[in-house]
Amino acid sequence: MRAIWDNIKGLYSLLVGMKITIVFLFSPRKTVHYPRKVVERENVENYRGPLELTRGKKDPAKTPCISCQLCVKACPGNCITVVKGKEGKAPSLWTYDFSYCCLCGACVETCPTGALAFSHRVYMVAKSREELLLDLLADLDDRVKKSPQLEAKTDAKSDAKSEAKTDSKADAKAGAPAKKDGEEPSPA
């Protein structure tokens, strides 16, 4: 008798499970359909993407990097190469191999001039290893061309953030940042 009763209760538990899935079948999707939609801006802003050089306080077109090599020594993956230029302290070559980078932040934290920051390129795509060898000076020039004047910023950190905003705008091909589908708490 006990076994029969247990099995009837078991059948009821199966019905409960079926009810849950049928409710989900007719409730809205939760995923963000990437090329057509992107995640919210605030979700991207604190993402650590590949490194980028920040823009100088005095001259927004130049990097504050002084080629001191501290980041090169600090990096656990040896992915940074900095070559000092002929005149002054500014670097003539600043490459960074993203395929070796573990995004630990040692370089950003050791930089004495705040010349480094994490970008927020969530949608970065590379088709070969060579493409992951990033030339950060060229990248900086690109960004300078896009927006020659720096908006009023106080420190390097928020500076980097504003850069990220323009970047993520450019990356999000859908244009306007669509809102994430079904972010509201589920009715479950």
Binding site: N7, K9, G10, L11, S13, L14, V16, G17, I20, T21
Partner: peptide
Amino acid sequence: KALVTENII
């Protein structure tokens, strides 16, 4: 709990 834990299977 309803979907998995109490499921008889």
